[in-house]
Design a binder for these strands. Structure first.
Lengths: 230, 230
DNA sequence: CCAAAAGTGTTCACGCTACACCCATGC
DNA sequence: GCATGGGTGTAGCGTGAACACTTTTGG
């Protein structure tokens, strides 16, 4: 065996899970049912095992809690303060993921003691999880401008106004409806469906779907998604 | 002890060290003097020890090779493929750092079997180090547009043309001299020094220094460094 | 008819682009 | 004087910001 005489460490993954509903950006938190910090809110986590990668571990944790697969997920960073976990030295790699809130069974949640919190009403979290969440938020804000990841938080069919409301929730400011619509339309990434959503107005708003194939073709051609100046 | 029954892992840090000289963006590589992959080029690395954070470990590795401290350094990501290291399961957190090439003793390098390579003439690297380097490059390109990190690669005093050449090396394309100069000047982050560099032209070019205090004040005021449209 | 949201038009100002043009000086 | 890089001027175009305006339809 090479590399002798080096310490080994516990490695965890922690997942920052974003969702969107009722006009609010939300986070899925977990009430810890084991020590230390039992009973306090935390991110969803788990330990790495020897036959998997960190990505696999993160997907495993996410699936265990939500039952969902094929979710947008990205590595955020690795946190290694010596005393970050009170019980033992644990190095944690954080991930963040985006979930379409209407697509899964809310009942699953109750069972596991998890709950959605609006991001402006978060409880204090254990360890360095507040810091991790702040970093995830910052990353989401940056990425949502330059890549079409916002769609991951919406149902497949959505109106332009819903999409704008989502972006308003992410950036915590109002966007001009006319300019937002034009900007999106000009990218030519949305397919207009032959249905109207009649809930939000008398006139009705067309439903759209994000066209991933189009996006990938355009991306290959040097195009880049950009909502910097909304 | 809590958290029983979980595997422990070797954790490494690997450093992507960028430098700039003669108009080329360069990488500092290391000729491995131990197995596996002895004699092949790799990033500079080391193992995490139990009393330090990953950041500390990365600075330690950098200082061991270059003797430099107070260097710009940032975490890049954590790589965890099960078979990435042929000898053992090693999770590696990569960092990248920016070095001013004129500020340290080249002799140190020879001693440790390290060497600078132009980024368009890199040798093949061991393990997943090629992938790490690509990610670092991508990150550097993004960050250099939105934060004043380019200055880390230059001596304290530099001409606008030198700065432009650096950006041209990073982005691998030519930039308009007039527009580049104007854009930078308009940010009001550079102090013009009362010296001229007479090496590159008969007229001589004023030397400038990046004013970090000014940058921090402006940043606090909502200003953000932006060289997106050079 | 009115309210309210969907969706379109129009104007203005600013910033990037391209390129022409001076400046200073060593040869 | 002329070549060379330093540095400035400027016209044109594209795009974001602001906001007025039209459309549709349920009440």
């Amino acid at each position: 065996m090479t590399y002798t005489n080096h310490e080994k460490f516990l490695i965890a993954v922690d997942c920052v899970i974003f969702g969107y509903s009722d006009g609010f950006l939300k986070l899925l938190l977990y009430k810890r049912d084991f020590e230390p910090e039992k009973g306090n809110w935390s991110l969803m986590g788990g330990f790495l095992s020897c036959d998997e990668t960190l990505d696999m571990a993160a997907y495993r944790v996410l699936a265990r809690i939500t039952g969902l697969r094929n979710i947008y997920m990205e590595q955020l960073g690795t946190f290694s303060e010596v005393k970050r976990d009170k019980a033992a030295r644990v190095i944690s790699t954080a991930y963040y993921s985006l979930i379409n809130l209407e697509e899964y069974d809310q009942a699953v949640l109750k069972k596991h003691g998890v709950e959605w919190f609006s991001i402006d009403e978060l409880p204090g979290l254990i360890f360095d999880h507040d810091e991790i969440v702040q970093k995830a938020l910052k990353r989401l804000k940056r990425k949502a401008k330059s890549e079409p990841i916002g769609f991951e938080l919406l149902p497949e069919k959505f109106t332009i106004t819903q999409l704008r409301n989502l972006y308003e929730a992410i950036y915590q400011r109002e966007l001009d409806p006319g300019n937002f619509r034009r900007k999106l339309m000009s990218m030519d990434l949305l397919d207009r469906l032959p249905y109207k959503d009649m809930n939000s107005s008398k006139k009705g708003a067309y439903l759209y779907a994000f066209n991933k194939e189009k996006y990938e073709i355009l991306s290959g051609n040097g195009f880049s998604f950009d909502l910097a100046g909304v």
